[in-house]
Design a protein around this nucleic acid. Sequence first.
DNA 1: CCTTCGCTCTATAACGTTATACAGACCGTC
DNA 2: GACGGTCTGTATAACGTTATAGAGCGAAGG
Lengths: 336, 336
Amino acid sequence: MAVSLKDIARRAGVSQATVSNVVNGYRPVGEATRERVQQAIDELGYTPNLSARHLRRGRTGIIALALPELNNPYFAELADAAIRAATARGYTLLLDYTDGDREKELLVADGFRAQIIDGLILSAVHLNRDDIASRTSQTPMVLVGEAIYHAPYDHVVIDNLAASREAMRHLIALGRRRIAFIGAHIEASRAPSLLRLRGYTEALAAAGLPFDPDLTVTTSGFGRGDGAAGMRALLTLAQPPDAVFAFNDLIALGAIRALHDHGLRVPTDVAVIGIDDVEEGRFSIPTLTTISPDKELIGRLAVEKLLDRIEGRPAGPPAEFQPPFRLVVRESAPAP
Amino acid sequence: MAVSLKDIARRAGVSQATVSNVVNGYRPVGEATRERVQQAIDELGYTPNLSARHLRRGRTGIIALALPELNNPYFAELADAAIRAATARGYTLLLDYTDGDREKELLVADGFRAQIIDGLILSAVHLNRDDIASRTSQTPMVLVGEAIYHAPYDHVVIDNLAASREAMRHLIALGRRRIAFIGAHIEASRAPSLLRLRGYTEALAAAGLPFDPDLTVTTSGFGRGDGAAGMRALLTLAQPPDAVFAFNDLIALGAIRALHDHGLRVPTDVAVIGIDDVEEGRFSIPTLTTISPDKELIGRLAVEKLLDRIEGRPAGPPAEFQPPFRLVVRESAPAP
DNA sequence: CCTTCGCTCTATAACGTTATACAGACCGTC
DNA sequence: GACGGTCTGTATAACGTTATAGAGCGAAGG
C-alpha cells in the first residue's frame, strides 16, 4: 500500500541503507546519489513508517502529559503550551487523564503505556514522596505541579509559598482582617494545598493577624462547585470573612458566585483572590484578582527537561525549576 | 531490556507463536499450555511491544481528534468525552490542534500524521465541501462540528437550525423585539455560523419581526474577547438591541461582560443566550441561558463511527448523526 | 489397515526500519 | 609499489510481533 524504503531504493537504483542515510543523515551520501534518491522520494511521496522506525530505534517519539482533568482551564492552557513545545521539537504529545484519582496516578507513574511513550510529564495531585520514590518504571519522568516531592526527578513548579504570601499581602494591604482560605485538604499527602496553606498562615502571622481555624475550608475537589460550597459554609459562621484566598481561580469564581447568591458584594463586602489566571477571570463579573504563573514557560520547561533526559543530553542531577509568577490586580480585590 | 515474546516462550517451553496465540487468541491453545504460558507472562511481567505489533498488523491503535483549540472549554469537554470513549474501546486518542487555521486543517485532513494514526475525527472551522471532497488521504475520517458538508464521511453534529430557532423562540417569548446575533462570519466557507444565522433569521420571520442587518455582528474568533468586542459595537447603535443570541457560550459571556461595563443589566435591559452549555455558564453572574448539546454523546458517537470504519464493520453509507440538545433556562434569559 | 480429519503446536517468513560489517575506489605517503 | 586512510556505497542482521504453512498425533470413518 504505502511506499517504503525498498520502493525508493529500487526506483533510485541504490540500496535501502543509502536511502535511509539520505532520509536521516546518519552517514554522508554522495551529492549525485543523494539528489537521485531525493527525487525518487518526492515522486513517490515517501514518508517513513514510524512503527518500524521506532521498533528499530527503541523510541517512539511520543511523550505523555498526565493531568488530573482537562475541564479545568488551567490544565487546558498548560496542555496547550506543552503540546506546542513538544511539536516544535519533533515529538508528539499524548494526553492522559488521572481524574485526580490516586490509583490512576500510580498506574501512570508506574509505566502504564510505557510501551508507547518515551517519557512522561506528570501533574499529580495525590502522590507523595514515597510513591514517587518507589516507582519502578525506567521511563524518564518530569513532575509538574504544586506538590513538594524532593524526589530524584526534575520538577517544574512555581514558588507556591512566595505566591501565597504575595496574594495574602495584597488582601491585608486592602485592610482585610478576617481572611479565609478555601481549598485546603486534610490528608498530609495533599502537598499543594499544604504549601499554599502555609503561605496563608505565615502571612497572617507576619501581619500580626490571628489564625482562626474556622476560616480554613476543606474542599473535596478543585472546581467551581467546590468553591461555592466552601463559601456557603463560611457564610454560616457567626463572623463571616471579609476576604477569601482561594486555592485556585475556579474555586475563587465559585466563591464569588456563592457570595452573589447571598446578596454580598465583591469586593466591597468580601474581597476574593485566586491562583492560576485562567482567561475566564478576565471577563467574569467582577473580574478576578489572581496570581498568574507563567504557564507557557511551565509547559515548555517541562517538555525541554524531559527531552534532555530522553535524548541523553547532559542535564546534571534532577532539580526543581521555578518559573516566575506575578500578581494580577483586577476588580475582585482591587489596588489599595 | 523489556521482556519479549521470546523470553516468555523460552520460560514456558513453547514457541513464540503459541505465546502470541495465548495473548491475542487468534487461534485456540490447549488448556494446560495456556496456563503455563499465562504463568510465565505474569511472572516476567510481559506486555506486548506496540511498535512491533503495529508494524506487523499495519495498525497503530491510535486515533486523532483534531480541534481548533483546547482553550474553549466546549472543546475540552468534547475531548474529554472522546478520550474516554476511545480508551473504553482499547484505543489511544491523540489530540491535534489546527488553531482554527485553514492551512492546518487541510494538512490534518490530508494525512499529516497518517503514519501514526488509524483514523481521524476532525472538527473543522474553515473547510468547505470541496476541501473535504478533494481529500486524497485514505485514513478513515469522521467529521464533527457545526458545518454542513454533505461529504462522503460520517458526520456528528446537532441540528443547528432547530437549536437556533429554539433559542430565538425563547428570547421572543420573553417579549424581546430587537434581537442581535453575535458571531456571524462573512465568508461562505464558514458554514457553522451560516446555519445558526439562518435559524436566527427564520425565527425572526416566523415571529413577524423585521431583520435589521445592523444587529448581525461579525467576529474574527469565537472567544470571550470577540463577544465583548461585538457587544461594544452593538452598543454604539442608535437603537441598541434588547436581546443577544450568541454563536456560542464564550461569545455570550464576553457580551455580558461588555454590557456590565456599559452599565446595562442582564437580563433586565438585555437578555443573552448562548450555545454549548460550558460549566462556566452555570456559575457566571448572571448564570447563562444556553442550548446544551449532548457533548458526551457527540464524543462517543464520533469515536464509535470511526472505529466501525477502521475495524471494517458494516456501517452502511456515510451518514449524518444528530445528537439531541435541550434549552437550559438560567438567569441571563429567564423563563417568560 | 489405511485414509482423513481435527486438534495442538512449531518453524519461519514477513512487516519497514536502522546499525554494523564489509567492499571497492581513489588518494596521498613512505 | 605496498600501505594506510578517507569516501561511498552495499549486504544483511536485527528489532518484536503475527500469519501462514505444515508437522505430529490420536480419533473417527470407510
